[in-house]
Amino acid sequence: MNLLWREALLSFRRTRLLSVLSVVTIAFALFVTGLFGLVAMNLRLALGQLEERVEVVAFVQRGTPSQTIAVATSDISAFPEVREVLYVSEADALERARTELVEFQDAYRDLEVNPLPPSLELKLQPGYRDARSAGEVAERLRGFGFIEDVRYGREWVQNLDRLRTIAGLVGLAIGSAFALVSMVIIGVTIRMTVLQRAREIQIMRLVGATDWFIRGPFILEGAIKGFLGGVLAVALCGAVFAAFKGQGVGLGLGLTFFGPLEVLALLVFGTLLGLAGSVVSVGRHLKRV
């Protein structure tokens, strides 16, 4: 085991420039992936906050007995999609309009008849805050005889859905592309190392080293490079994040950096990329030595 580490580290020392170059390239690839991950993570958090605001409003016919509304509220609360049902009476609605819509304060004050209908405001459970679920809930609400109209900001919810899907797909595409690029880069550097060490490999074979003994240091080297690339990528992401925060970009948006789990994931991802790249490359190129 000691020999494995020694040979892997020796290879680093012998091909210092190449090793530094490959770690930097891997780091750059992981950095871009990480940066995208950071954007995606913040986008997800922001969407999460927006999702909180997805609600369904059902307008109730004036004069509906409070008994009927109470029974319906209890039924609606039992919907699996529904987290909370709030009954807003006509008076409550007017009071709220007066408080929230300051520019119409005078108009609301002078009213002789309250034009605002009572309503039921539904907040949805996490996981159901999408256009389809909101639409289904709205459809069921329309089945109640005393409900005049149901609104859930259909377009807004659909746009939110689309944004989330696009963010997911772009993340997947960019992440996969850069993962592939990282693997290719690691493969190329391992190939160069294998060719550079061809003589040593031939000697190892001649004196009876097993195939896995020969492969071991290369594979370990790839994993170390991937890991170091990951460390550098996390540092770069941190630097960019700090610069953004320092310049006040995004202040008030509540930007968040990776937690320990995400950092660990990036390091593991880097190491796995290094492993995969070196395993594939060593297998292919050792045959030619």
Binding site: R199, E200, Q202, L206, V207, G208
Partner: peptide, 24 residues
Amino acid sequence: TADEVPRLRRRLGIVFQDFRLLED
């Protein structure tokens, strides 16, 4: 088999014209 080749070579000494030493 591929696994047996190293075992054979451990029972042989091989010397070449170009020495095949590691320079470093």
